Simulated assay, not measured.
Amino acid sequence: MRVRRASAHHVELPWTGRADIRGGSDLVVVHACEASARELADRLHDRLRSATERVTHRSDTTRRTAAPPPWRGGPRK
């Protein structure tokens, strides 16, 4: 995780952050810019949580709502 504050006083969102997490072969990277360090931490936390949930549930077959079309290997009628 990297957190930086801009040295220029005229910057509207001076706090920037980046967080990386590797889980197995998956890499999750999130970025955020905010006005305060607390807001930045909250935003990075939210984005990191949603991104890791997306990666962990990506291969779940229960989340797929429809069969693929026939030209992608789906059932033929």
Rank of each mutant, 00 (worst) to 15 (best):
M1P: 13
M1W: 00
M1C: 12
R2C: 10
R2Q: 14
R2E: 15
R2W: 15
V3K: 08
V3I: 15
R4Y: 11
R4L: 15
S7M: 13
S7P: 05
A8F: 13
A8H: 07
A8N: 12
A8E: 14
H9C: 11
H10Q: 10
H10R: 02
H10Y: 13
V11R: 10
E12C: 09
E12R: 12
E12Y: 09
L13Y: 08
P14K: 00
W15H: 08
T16N: 08
G17R: 01
G17E: 03
G17H: 02
G17Q: 00
R18A: 12
R18Q: 07
R18W: 07
A19M: 06
A19E: 04
A19P: 06
A19R: 01
D20A: 05
I21F: 06
I21R: 09
I21A: 09
S25W: 07
S25F: 05
D26I: 04
D26M: 10
D26H: 02
L27K: 00
V28D: 05
V29K: 03
V29E: 05
V29Q: 09
V29A: 07
V30T: 10
C33A: 15
C33K: 04
C33P: 08
E34M: 10
A35H: 00
A35I: 14
S36E: 08
S36R: 04
S36D: 06
A37R: 09
A37G: 03
A37S: 06
A37M: 14
R38H: 13
R38N: 04
E39C: 08
E39Y: 12
L40A: 02
L40S: 07
L40M: 11
A41V: 11
D42T: 03
D42N: 07
D42Q: 09
D42H: 03
R43E: 13
R43H: 05
L44H: 01
L44K: 02
L44Y: 06
H45P: 02
H45F: 14
D46Y: 00
R47Q: 12
R47V: 05
R47P: 05
L48I: 03
R49K: 12
R49I: 06
T52P: 01
T52H: 07
E53R: 08
E53W: 02
R54Q: 05
R54A: 15
R54I: 06
R54D: 07
V55T: 07
H57S: 15
H57C: 08
R58N: 13
R58P: 01
R58G: 15
S59F: 13
D60N: 06
D60Q: 09
D60V: 01
D60A: 01
T62F: 07
R63T: 13
R64F: 12
T65K: 10
T65E: 13
T65A: 14
T65Q: 13
A67D: 10
A67H: 07
P68V: 02
P68Q: 04
P69M: 05
P70K: 01
P70D: 00
P70H: 09
R72A: 14
G73H: 00
G74H: 04
R76Q: 13
R76S: 15
R76Y: 12
K77F: 12
K77E: 13
K77Y: 14
